[in-house]
Amino acid sequence: MSVEYNADQKIPHPAMWGVLYKSSTPFWDGVKEKRVMLQRCKSCGYWLNPPRPMCPKCRSQESEWVAAKGTGKIYSWVTFNESPHSAFKTPYEAVLVELDEGPRIVSNVVGINSDELEIGMPVEVTFEDVAEDLTLPKFKKVG
């Protein structure tokens, strides 16, 4: 089920977690331009997901950001029946999507009913402007 928001409540913003956010800045900058950006080690090609300052495989600090195609599969999901935050109306799902490139990201679904959701379901990214200063990447059925 898609997330519905209470209009008078502030949705948690990624910038609230200022410190580690630095590593994720290119990801959120990409979202603003409606792209899913992934970090990859420039030396050995290892995906740095979630983003981080050093490659755990070869310890290089040289990395590059590449745009994902935006397609993937539902890898796992949970349903929230009790709201964890005043901005979110329940019920809604949080999903873990495995992108075709390999990395997994946490997101929500758009236009998929709870009883339709299943592991392995092909999905593609869509961008939802949930607040004036916040766009989120979400996933819908392919096609």
Binding site: L20, K22, S23, R52, M54
Partner: peptide
Amino acid sequence: GRSELQMVCEAVK
């Protein structure tokens, strides 16, 4: 000009 996490990783390395 960089995160604390990056500096700590550099120092540990």
